[in-house]
């Protein structure tokens, strides 16, 4: 009984070690990406095969865009909150609600213009083929309409989905 047990235990240990080594080596690249200061940018660089010099430009564009994005985010949140408050109290369409809806629409246009501008700039900083791929991907993720549902488990949010 001793020999079969030894073989089985050694085989199981060897199997576990093989599993751990395979997992460790196959996930090494992604673990390194996640350890970066901005994993999303590190992922972008790896996914769209961005050269180091192009990546520096893309990072600069990204950093410059973030404050605009944050400001727009504030405006959208504030506008939506005010609309919700007014709608809770109103029983008919008031000029204030109308004005806020107009403001929300204008914010949305501005937001989409800014985003598109940023996406085009980033795509131009990439090699042409990768730039086209990036544009197709990011537009699909950010400009998806309600009647075009994304694949199940999609983490991104289409603009229309928030209204």
């Amino acid at each position: 009984m001793r020999r079969p047990l030894v073989i089985l235990v050694l085989g199981a240990i060897l199997g576990l070690l093989t599993a751990a080594a395979t997992y460790w080596s196959m996930t090494a690249h992604h673990r390194a990406l996640l350890r970066q200061e901005q994993p999303e940018l590190a992922w972008l660089r790896a996914e769209f095969k961005v050269a180091p010099e192009d990546f520096a430009r893309i990072s600069a564009l990204h950093q410059a865009y973030l404050p605009q994005c944050a400001e727009l985010c504030q405006r959208i949140a504030s506008c939506e909150a005010r609309i919700r408050t007014l709608l809770d109290q109103a029983d008919h369409l008031t000029p204030e609600i109308e004005a806020l809806l107009l403001e929300a629409a204008q914010t949305r246009v501005e937001c989409q213009k800014n985003m598109l501008e940023h996406f085009f700039q980033v795509s131009r900083a990439m090699p042409p083929e990768q730039g086209r791929r990036y544009l197709a991907w990011v537009k699909e993720k950010t400009f998806r309409m309600d009647h075009e549902p994304g694949p199940p488990g999609e983490a991104s949010h289409g603009h229309q989905g928030h209204h």
Partner: peptide
């Protein structure tokens, strides 16, 4: 899973509506 997470984080970082939501 990690790729999906990082892609979502990128989209979230450039999409004000996603941030507001």
């Amino acid at each position: 899973r990690w790729e999906q997470l990082m892609a979502s984080r990128y989209v979230h970082s450039v999409d004000p509506y996603a941030q507001a939501a």
